[in-house]
Design a protein around this nucleic acid. Structure first.
Length: 578
DNA sequence: GCCGTTTTCGGCCCGACTGTTTTCAGTCG
């Protein structure tokens, strides 16, 4: 039996689906493959265990056929169907589908009529005007595809939610200057669902009376826009620098709640919502909910919550709308009571000038108080992390004195003395137990030895968790979003051991980390592992990143009680002393 | 290929925009 993750198997099923699409297979069959790919990644159990027990068909979306394919992948490392398609279609062809405006039908034509089987071939053919000779293509399509291809080569990534938030803020400020032109304005899409990586930004507007045209012009004149991608009656797409797109939808006021729901997505969530509406005898779209017989609009829906209620569901927060079990839970009234930003009572991971932070202890305290917190833990780096001027034992004693001084000035606020201690490559911690014992809070983390094997890194983390002084493991996977992959680590094992040793795992809220992510945060909850949401702030302003960490927690179905820094300071101190 | 309080067949979400057509196909979200 091959050792594969659900994600790896899902990638194979999606590749199968892509190739089947290009070949021209039955679209419903293709969707079944895509659904199954998503369904297996949404499982909390390890996929290999489900396969071993022969329980694949218990997963909704996996029937006899796909269970066979998935089992075959585990037994042989691949699928004979996939291998056959790969023999039939060249390797680079599925990448063509990544170019905006180029879907399976056109890829099919390009391959079978012009023998184009990769991006480079396509670029050449477009430049030599061969593509416009195909049926259904013309000079405009050819030109659009060439532009899209060049953009794709230039920018093919997703932006982090942190970056998207900054763009969104500038958009919001721009449109607030012309607030007479609209009655409603909101963001939707994956930005509103708070996904860690966002492809584009979606905005919804209800224009003020007689201001539709003026609003459209204002949108088109957005100063950061490099190109108007498309502009219709109700929809405008702008392209900003680096190929980032912003979609605008303009609707009547009575459509607003439906549009919010519709454009927030996800697509998969909406497919199920519309099916439920259909089964109840309605058509659901961005304009309203309509009786299938009479075409009459349901008038008593004024908010998104009304819409969910009408369909027999409790309100589903945007962060959960991924069709990963939330609709079933909503129909049974079993949704989590999602943690909120206001539940967070303190910050347990931050840096000061003692190591690589930019601010003093007192400045961090002031900022935390301004944010409504009851406590912080000062957790600078330990000695061996020289790049971040890690503290020696003497520095740590020095710092303890300063903490005591500042504590006197702020009697109603609790300052915990802590450390972010390096878990060294030889499994040892950077400080002795004698040093660690004296501290209120110890965070263990890996900042070196990323090239070690998975077994070695597992062992490092597990050894650290077995040390009774270690309270939290920081950024457990070590990834930097869009920059560095996670080091090899078996998170299922780490979560199991965290439960056994009573160690909390961190959701690192820094926009470049978001580690744990929503997926593993959910798994941790299901294993009864406590979570600490920490910003790892190196500056007072970074304490505000907490919102991103809370979003990850909300996407991971976490509730207040799953998170240690929702406790008040007395409860937290009790918890840490246990 | 999956699914079932219309259950073993016959469905499978819905609409906007563009470019290509002359009533629509393809793509996207």
């Amino acid at each position: 039996m091959e050792d594969l993750t659900a994600k790896e198997v899902a990638a194979m099923l999606n590749e199968l689906a892509d190739l089947m699409e290009i070949k021209g297979d039955n679209p419903f069959r293709i969707r079944a493959y895509q659904n199954a790919a998503r369904a297996i990644t949404g499982q909390s159990e390890k996929l290999i265990d489900i396969v071993k027990d022969g329980r694949l068909q218990d997963i909704k979306g996996v029937g006899e056929g796909l269970a066979g394919i998935i089992t075959e992948i585990f037994e042989t490392g691949t699928s004979s169907q996939l291998e056959e398609l790969k023999r039939e279609l060249p390797a680079g062809i599925s990448e063509l589908l990544n170019i905006p405006g180029l879907g399976p039908k056109r890829a099919h034509q390009l391959y079978y009529e012009l023998e184009i089987n990769n991006i480079d071939d396509l670029k050449l053919a477009l430049k030599e005007n061969q593509v416009q000779t195909l049926k259904g293509f013309g000079p405009k399509t050819e030109n659009n595809l060439l532009e899209a291809l060049l953009e794709y080569e230039n920018y093919q990534g997703l932006m982090t939610i942190g970056r998207a938030d900054k763009l969104a803020k500038r958009l919001e400020e721009y449109f607030k200057e012309s607030d007479g032109l609209w009655k409603q304005m909101s963001f939707a899409g994956s930005l509103r669902r708070r996904k860690e990586l966002v492809k584009d930004i979606d905005m919804i507007f209800v224009p003020a009376e007689d201001k539709l045209e003026e609003l459209k012009d204002t949108i088109k004149n957005y100063p950061e826009s490099e190109k108007i991608e498309l502009a219709g009656d109700t929809k405008i797409t702008l392209q900003l620098e680096n190929g980032i797109k912003v979609d605008f939808r303009l609707l009547e006021e009575e459509s607003y709640p439906f549009a919010q729901q519709h454009f927030t997505g996800s697509k998969e969530h909406n497919v199920v919502i519309r099916r439920i509406a259909k089964e109840a005898g309605y058509i659901s779209n961005e304009y309203g909910l309509f009786d299938r017989e009479t075409d009459e609009k349901v008038t008593r829906i004024n908010t998104e919550a009304d819409l969910y209620e009408f369909l027999g569901l409790s309100y589903i927060i945007p962060e959960l709308r991924e069709d990963k079990g939330e609709i079933e839970a909503a129909s049974e009234n079993k949704l989590p009571e999602s943690v909120e930003l206001a539940d967070i009572k303190g910050e347990l991971h931050l840096h000061t000038r003692y190591s690589d932070g930019a601010c003093t202890i007192e400045e961090m305290v002031e900022a935390a108080i301004a944010q409504g917190y009851e406590y912080i833990a000062v957790t600078d780096h330990s000695e061996s992390l020289r790049i971040a001027s890690g503290l020696t034992v003497e520095d740590l004693e020095e710092q303890a004195k300063e903490i005591a001084e500042v504590q006197k000035k702020y009697p109603d606020f609790k300052i915990l003395s802590g450390i972010e201690v390096d878990i060294l490559s030889d499994n040892n911690l950077d400080f002795s137990d004698e040093v660690l014992e004296k501290l209120d809070l110890v965070i263990g983390s890996i900042h070196s030895g990323f090239t070690q094997s998975e077994a070695e890194i597992n062992e490092r983390i597990i050894t650290a968790m077995e040390n009774p002084n270690v309270d939290i493991i920081a950024h457990p996977r070590g990834r930097l979003l869009g920059k560095r992959e996670a080091y090899p680590v078996d998170m299922d094992k780490i979560i199991k051991e965290a439960a056994r040793t009573g160690t909390a795992l961190e959701i690192n809220a820094s926009p470049s980390r978001l580690d744990l992510d929503d997926h593993y945060a959910k798994k941790a909850k299901e294993a009864d592992v406590k979570i600490s949401i920490n910003t790892d702030a190196h500056h007072t302003r970074e304490l505000k990143d907490m919102e991103l960490g809370v979003s990850v927690a909300r996407r991971g179905w976490l509730e207040k009680d799953d998170i240690i820094n929702t406790m008040n300071s007395d409860q937290l101190i009790d918890y840490l002393n246990k």
